[in-house]
Amino acid sequence: MTQPELVKIGKLEIKYLIDGSVHKGMGLFELTVPSGSNVPPPHSHIHNEECIYVLEGILRYSVDDVTRDLHPGDVMCTPKGSAHGFSNPYEEKARVLIMLTPDIGVQYFRDVASIVNAAEPPDITQILAVMARYGLVPAS
């Protein structure tokens, strides 16, 4: 078995466990969010449902008009087309499992990392273009 791929986007770490994009199936990755990290803007997915399960720490997660502080063992799901976002305003890092179906794949995170890690501040126009290619729509 090969080691899961680790992609770093700023302070965020994405450890891809299952890349389902090849067969348009379910994907699974572990996301580590240090305290106060820059996070993606709230967005929706045209093609994907997302479910988040907290392993460690506390993650603030929003879906449409509902915002919750999720603790270890908590689950929150995002239906296709619902606006969602997250943050970690707490001192301890948060570590979560995220399942996407169908998966957008690890290449999405590689593409975003190449922009975010290249310049400070990152070029938001390029990030929005990558998001659009993978069916992510910024929340208005």
Rank of each mutant, 00 (worst) to 15 (best):
P34W: 10
L28S: 10
L55C: 10
N48C: 12
A129Y: 02
Y16M: 15
S62Y: 00
E50R: 09
P138R: 09
K11S: 09
D123G: 06
R110C: 00
S44N: 14
Y134F: 11
A118M: 04
E49T: 14
P72E: 07
Q126N: 09
G25V: 08
E56P: 03
S37G: 06
D65Q: 10
V66I: 14
L6F: 03
M99Y: 02
S44Q: 15
T32L: 13
A83P: 00
S114V: 00
L17W: 05
P138W: 04
G85I: 06
R95V: 12
V106R: 13
T67K: 09
G73D: 09
K93L: 04
V116D: 03
T32N: 13
N48F: 01
C51S: 14
V96M: 07
P79W: 05
M76I: 01
L28G: 07
M131N: 13
D69I: 02
E50V: 10
D69P: 00
I98Y: 04
Y53A: 09
D69C: 07
K15T: 14
P34C: 12
P89Q: 11
A139R: 06
M26I: 12
G105E: 03
R95I: 04
Y90H: 15
D64F: 04
R60Y: 01
D19M: 10
V33M: 09
A119P: 00
G135I: 02
Y53Q: 07
K93I: 00
A129H: 05
T67V: 08
N38G: 13
P122Q: 12
H71E: 08
H43T: 09
G81R: 12
P72A: 09
P102C: 14
V137G: 01
V137S: 05
A83Q: 03
F29H: 13
A132Q: 14
D111S: 03
F29I: 02
L59N: 10
P138C: 07
P121K: 07
T2S: 14
S114G: 07
H23D: 13
P40T: 10
T67L: 02
A132L: 05
V96Y: 04
V106C: 10
G57V: 05
H84E: 09
T67H: 08
I46T: 11
Y90P: 01
V137P: 02
S44F: 04
K93M: 03
T67W: 04
I46K: 15
G10E: 04
D64G: 07
A129C: 02
